[in-house]
Write a protein that binds this DNA or RNA. Structure first.
Lengths: 108, 108
DNA sequence: CAGTATCCGTCTCGATACTG
DNA sequence: CAGTATCGAGACGGATACTG
């Protein structure tokens, strides 16, 4: 489930605290920089996360709607696991970069 | 990079030990059960893993070719991280299943 | 603001056939 | 056996317009 473009990033942002839909969209745009998530995809990803019990959806208003999202305890755990992987990858970034360079240089 | 259909599985199998191309293909077919990896995709995934320094490629024969693949120290680390995630997910499988069931039941 | 509907481009995968 | 070439199918994401 983490193997798509946005899910892990959403988890990281939600690990900070609860967000409303539009604010979350803006926050994700900051982090990915090159491209913002579309409204449609954000909804899709949040639905999947909610369905699997990682994200909680709170509806507080009606008109205008106020919906906020937060991590469940299970989601917080998953975000922790995700962070572990990210930290590991960051710590090895230089080794990976070097391996790539060596591989590309060896191409005939 | 782990976010595709085969890479993480390849890592798990290679964590056992070195494999030749065709044997690895057969081993993966066992584990995925429903469908075998195509020769083309296996080569693609192995190339990417090799390029990033996670997999080592050994050529010992010429005709017929004998090529075996094994994990580098870095690859072994990554496989360990992957296993952590898998173990985590397995330990929570029941909670996730229950969350899904509750969510699907709540659909109007 | 939150969410849905629709359409379309792209990227990955799978199947097949072929080479040394 | 290991690898490449080619083609088609399908999943996913992006853009836009629309609703309550």
């Amino acid at each position: 489930m983490l193997g798509d473009r946005w899910t892990s990033l959403i988890l990281m942002v939600l690990a900070i605290g609860p967000w409303r839909h539009a604010d979350l969209k803006r926050a994700l745009a900051q982090l990915s920089a090159e491209q913002a998530i579309s409204q449609r995809v954000l909804t899709l990803k949040l639905r999947t996360l909610e369905r699997n019990g990682f994200v909680l959806r709170h509806v507080t208003g009606d008109v205008p709607p106020k919906v906020s999202y937060s991590l469940s305890p299970l989601g917080l755990e998953l975000a922790g696991e995700g962070r572990r992987m990210v930290d590991w990858a960051n710590a090895r970034a230089e080794a990976i970069r070097a391996a790539r360079q060596a591989f590309d240089a060896a191409e005939d």
